[in-house]
């Protein structure tokens, strides 16, 4: 019987190892798996490479993981956001590296990683400073750069509803990178607000099929980054 439920966020992140590459779903606070990130801080893994669109805000969630000194490298498209102060300080002091990737290229590199496509050509970044070091090729009269696929050891994802098989649906724009990250990680770990038996999600409505999900933990009332930041919260 397939049942991917685990009993706690601690158990869900227990095997994340030092030096791992971890994809973290979310765009701003929408879809940010805060409880899994806090469990990862408690767990202690360090020297992580983290893939996310941003770098978190305030001193909770992803920003707290960075602030705790666990992230040696960020791969992201937009490290500056409102209330984002942790990453800029560590970046400017040289303690966290940054690999800046255009947003669509980041999404497609992850998609390619999950799809078994090792690299692809795109016109994005041609003729800009972000082209430096990339192979350029003319195809059909237009210039493109070669971009390599991105995979990870783990993905941390927030869903609205999961069934025991790992079929997922999301809340509005909290979906963002999560469905592609789920395909690109060796182990995809999902926190869901609601967990239902198989059949509890209409197959026509499944967004992420369960084959891409390894573990599910219920977090019935997930915290919101903006609420925590407004409260001045800091984790741990």
């Amino acid at each position: 019987m397939i049942d991917k439920r685990v009993s706690s966020v601690e158990e869900a992140v227990a095997d994340i190892f030092d030096g791992a590459t971890v994809m973290v779903g979310g765009f701003g606070e929408a879809g940010s798996p805060i409880e899994l990130l806090h469990a990862l801080i408690d767990q202690g893994a360090t020297d992580l490479t983290v893939v996310n669109n941003n770098t978190g805000s305030g001193e909770v969630g992803l920003a707290a993981l960075i602030r705790a000194g666990r992230v040696s490298k960020m791969i992201c498209s937009y490290p500056r956001t409102l209330n984002s102060t942790v990453f800029p300080e560590l970046y400017q002091s040289g303690r966290t590296a940054l690999d800046l990737v255009p947003q669509g290229t980041l999404a497609e590199r992850i998609r390619a990683g999950g799809a078994g496509i090792p690299a692809f050509y795109t016109a994005t970044s041609v003729g800009t400073p972000l082209e430096v070091g990339k192979e350029r090729r003319e195809i059909g009269g237009r210039d493109y750069v070669l971009e390599y696929a991105l995979t990870a050891d783990f993905a941390l994802i927030k869903a609205k509803v999961a069934d025991y098989h790992g079929n997922l649906i999301f809340n509005k724009t909290a979906r963002n990178y999560s469905p592609v990250m789920a395909t690109a990680a060796d182990a995809t770990i999902v926190q869901a607000s609601e967990v239902v038996p198989p059949g509890g999600i209409d197959p026509e409505c499944v967004v992420t099929p369960g084959i891409f999900v390894d573990r599910i933990v219920i977090v019935a009332e997930p915290a919101l980054e903006s609420t925590l930041v407004a409260q001045g919260a800091s984790y741990p």
Partner: peptide, 21 residues
């Protein structure tokens, strides 16, 4: 997307994808 100032945090978002596509 950037004024290229030394020490500034570079941030590109989706701008390069939009103008290319």
């Amino acid at each position: 997307w950037s004024t290229g100032e030394p020490g500034a945090i570079p941030a590109v978002g989706g701008a390069m994808d939009l103008v290319a596509g």
